[in-house]
């Protein structure tokens, strides 16, 4: 029981860093400490795996919106901008 509590306490200390580790935002000693902890902790490894699955699903949500160019037209009307010149815009 005490052993389990002790393990949970240790994992708790690494929890915030685990999220940063997942984002590749840990460096140096912190990163090394996390790696060592992960080598010996199945529970944190599973957490990391779950985080990776959720991230990859979230990342797939980023599909380019099929935004019509009427936005530009609407903005021009609101701001009373002149019509585009021949060499003027939309080239990017």
């Amino acid at each position: 029981m005490d052993k389990q509590k002790n393990a949970d306490d240790i994992c708790g200390k690494f929890a915030v860093d685990l999220s940063a580790y997942h984002d590749n935002e840990l460096e140096g000693k912190e990163r090394d400490a996390m790696k060592r902890h992960l080598d010996g902790c199945g529970s944190c490894r599973r957490d990391l795996e779950k985080m990776t699955k959720i991230s990859s699903a979230m990342n797939s949500l980023n599909q380019p919106a099929d935004l019509e160019l009427r936005l530009l037209e609407d903005l021009k009307k609101t701001l009373k901008l002149p019509e585009e010149q021949e060499n003027g815009g939309r080239k990017c």
Binding site: L71, G89, R90, C92
Partner: peptide, 22 residues
């Protein structure tokens, strides 16, 4: 130069829209 503004809109409108949508 007002022609610069539409170029910025064209360049970034999708990212802005996507963020708002999320």
């Amino acid at each position: 130069d007002q022609s610069a503004f539409p170029q910025l809109v064209s360049k970034y409108q999708r990212q802005v829209y996507n963020h708002c949508q999320r």
